[in-house]
Structure formats: C-alpha cells, structure tokens
Lab assay of single mutants.
Amino acid sequence: LVRYRTISKIPQITLNFVDLKGDPFLASPTSDREIIAPKIKERTHNVTEKVTQVLSLGADVLPEYKLQAPRIHRWTILHYSPFKAVWDWLILLLVIYTAVFTPYSAAFLLKETEEGPPATECGYACQPLAVVDLIVDIMFIVDILINFRTTYVNANEEVVSHPGRIAVHYFKGWFLIDMVAAIPFDLLIFGSGSEELIGLLKTARLLRLVRVARKLDRYSEYGAAVLFLLMCTFALIAHWLACIWYAIGNMEQPHMDSRIGWLHNLGDQIGKPYNSSGLGGPSIKDKYVTALYFTFSSLTSVGFGNVSPNTNSEKIFSICVMLIGSLMYASIFGNVSAIIQRLYSGTARYHTQMLRVREFIRFHQIPNPLRQRLEEYFQHAWSYTNGIDMNAVLKGFPECLQADICLHLNRSLLQHCKPFRGATKGCLRALAMKFKTTHAPPGDTLVHAGDLLTALYFISRGSIEILRGDVVVAILGKNDIFGEPLNLYARPGKSNGDVRALTYCDLHKIHR
C-alpha cells in the first residue's frame, strides 16, 4: 500500500512540481520508500527539464536528425535550378540546329562534286560548318556529364541527390541515346576521305529529338503553341524528305545512260545542264529549293507536275512521300480545326451564355430598361472574369491554397485601402477568403433606401454616388468604403439613402 501511494504521487509531482519531503505519510521509514524516492526525484528532475525545454521552444527539443539540413553532394545540380533551365534551352537550340543542318550536310555532301578544292585539302579548321559541328559534339558530351550530376524525382516524389543513384537512373534511361548522339564521328573518321560515311553517321544526332519531343509535351495545353509546333514538325519532315529526294537524284545521276532524272530535267529547265562528264548542272541553292518544293507539294497532295519522278527509285520514294503525307494530314492537320476551336472556345461560351440571357429575357418578357441593365451587367461581368467562376475553380483546392490565391487576387485593395494598413498577414488572409466580388454598370442602383444592410462594401474600381431623395450626399471612388460596420450592432440596419454607380464599378463586399 505504501508503495502504491508513493507511485500514485508521481503525476502530481510531474505537473505541480511538489516535493515529496513535505508529505508526512511518505516520510515513514520503510525500505521500499527509501529505494523508490531517489528514482522519483530523478524522474521528476528529468520531466521538469523536458517541460522547461518545451515551454522555452528551444531548438534542442527536436531530434538531432530533424535539425540537420538535407545534404547535397558537391557538384550536384538541382533539376529545378536556373542554371539547369538555361542549359536545357541551350541544348534545345543545338538539337534544332542539328535537326536542320545534319540531314542537309549528309545529303548535299554525298558524292558532291561542286567546283573547288576537296575538304581534305583545305583542312578541318577552315570549314565553318565542321567547326560548328565540333562545338555541338562537345556541348552534347558536356550535357552527358551534367546529367550524371543532376537530381531527379523518383516514384515516391522524392528528390534524389545521391550521385550513385543518379548515375544508375541515367544509365537506365537516356544515357545510350545521348551517348550515340554525342559521338564525334568527324574526329574519329577525319582524314579518311569518307565524307559520305561521316554525313550518314552524323544523322545519329537526330535521336535527341525524342527527348525534345517529350520536353515539349508540357506545352500541349496551349493551343497556339501546339499549332506552332505542328507546323514546325511538318516543315521539318518536309526538309528531311527534300534532303533524301536530292540524295536519290544525286546518286543516280552519274550512272544513268539517259538523262531522265529530276536533276537533269531541272538543269535543262533553268539552262544549267550537266555536261557529258557529269559536272556542271544547277547550283546547290536551286537543287535544295526545288527538292523542298517537290516534297511540300507531295505532302499537301497538290502535285503540280513541273517536278516529277521519272526513275524507279524516284517513283518509289514519291509513293512513300504520299503515304507520309496522308498520315500527316490525319495526325496534324486533322487537329488544326480542334485547336482553332479551342482557341476561340471563350468567344463561343460568351455567345452561348448571351443567347441564354436573351432567351430568358424573351421568355419572361423583361421590360426594355431592365433588359438593357441585365445585358450590360452580363457584358461587364464577362469582360472582368472571362466567364470563369472563381468560386467553382477554387473549390477543388485546399483552404490554405485558397487563402493564398484570394490574398493575391485582392492584393491591390488590401495594400491601398486604409482600414487594412497594419493588419497582420493572417488577418488579411482571413479577410480575403470572405470577400465576394460584384460588378455594376453605370446607372445601376446597388442599394435602395430602406434596404437591409448586411454587408460592408469596398470599391475596387469606378465611382458611385450616394443620394437622399434627389440630393447627392457624397461621391465615392476607388478604395472608399460604404455599408454597415460589421458586428457593431446586434441587428442589421437599414439604408438611409440610395447608392448608384456612376461608372463601371468593381466592388468587394463582406457579409455579416
């Protein structure tokens, strides 16, 4: 019993810090008490220290592992850092350059016999395009090294910054494609005289377009951006097909006994025919423009016929181009109408809503002055909100995010209106959640004399007048207030005048 009563005193000691020596009952000389009392004092002292730490809000209350900052290894790049964003855009520009100039170089340097010394005699450094290609190869190699040090988000939505895990993730992902696209074939085969082989191998750079397509997928929600990307894709495919079309004609031209190829026909049409040795002929500019003209006309199913396939190889390629053109029509131009419709969806919704308003007016036989006010209010409210119901949009977000959005939407009023000066951010967040926005066209009466005042109004834009009878008592403008002081009276009061809008007004109100 003594032991039980001794232990039962522990909660009292913990909360009230009572010393055991003052209790005459606990001072009985028993061996059990002498053993338990020192333990009680020690526990009391420890609990006292913990309570003191909690009340003082000291940093040592938290466990040590929670006080440590997340460790980022040296030379690790955050995937959302500004440097990584700028670097990704730079790589994107280099990939676009590669997609345009690599097929052009591979096709127009394929057994090209233009006048001038061969590239091997001039030297590697004197070729501007080769120098640019070398810079692109170096940048792609540097990009691989950067990807080995860039964080990523795993399946659990955690940012991984450990170098080993980053390397394994990159090896399992895009490393092989990036490595093949970054191989400097110019340096590996330079001086061997195989410019045709170098041009063909350099087309491996186009593998990076797969990554670019995935990154550009984030802009699919913007109709104008999608339309622009589709047109660029169409032009890029036409450019690639033009390079292939020229390569076919250029390879067949020296081996044909009869002059029936499209390059021969082009030379005869523009007065620059090929001679018996295969030299001469149109310039590279004429060849490229004509090839691009043929691919565009074939892809769009126009086909004027002034550039036509004559050999079997050219006919087979033309059939493939027609098939590609039909697929592009289905996948690209078939979506253009939907994209344009999405661009004008706001206008369509406006006309639909206006039609419903006019049908309501016609069905209920609203008189002319009231009908005009109804239409003007709808037009003004639509121009202010673009038909978007803010309350319906915010309803799907958590309250903390709703408060931040409301604070942002009402920031101008909260910053410049005098009653809100000096208020804490928590108070402003709470008030912003209570605001209701209303609009009024010129001549609209917001409050009639004798109406119950259940709200306090803040003028965000425009001006109003307060009338008693036919006498203008006051004219209020931006950041002015009218209405009933909230919670100042037990019952809502009545208006002693009319409140009429002089201009288009936007008002925020808080109800009782």
Rank of each mutant, 00 (worst) to 15 (best):
I77T: 03
S81H: 05
W89A: 03
T98V: 10
A99H: 01
A106I: 11
K111N: 04
C122H: 01
A125Y: 13
P128N: 03
P128H: 03
L129H: 03
V136L: 01
F140I: 01
I144V: 11
E158F: 04
G164A: 13
I166Q: 01
I166Y: 01
V168T: 09
H169Y: 10
Y170W: 01
F171K: 01
I177Y: 05
D178R: 01
D186I: 09
L187V: 13
L188Q: 06
F190V: 14
E195K: 08
L201N: 01
T203N: 11
R205K: 09
L206T: 05
R211G: 06
A213G: 09
R214W: 04
S220V: 09
Y222I: 05
A224M: 11
A225Q: 06
L229C: 09
M231S: 01
A242G: 01
W245N: 01
G249K: 01
Q253A: 14
D257Q: 06
D257F: 04
S258Q: 13
R259C: 05
H264Q: 03
D268W: 10
N275G: 03
S277Y: 01
Y288D: 01
L292A: 01
F304K: 04
T311V: 01
N312E: 01
N312S: 01
S313H: 03
S313G: 04
L323F: 03
S326L: 07
L327W: 04
A330F: 09
G334M: 01
S337L: 03
I340N: 01
S345F: 03
T352Y: 13
L355V: 10
R356P: 03
R356V: 06
I366T: 01
N368E: 08
P369A: 04
L374G: 03
E376W: 09
M390A: 05
M390L: 08
G396L: 03
C406L: 06
L409Q: 09
L413F: 04
L414G: 03
Q415F: 14
C417H: 15
K418I: 05
K418E: 12
F420T: 01
R421Y: 06
R429V: 03
A432T: 04
K434C: 05
F435L: 09
T438V: 12
T438H: 08
H439S: 06
T445V: 11
H448K: 03
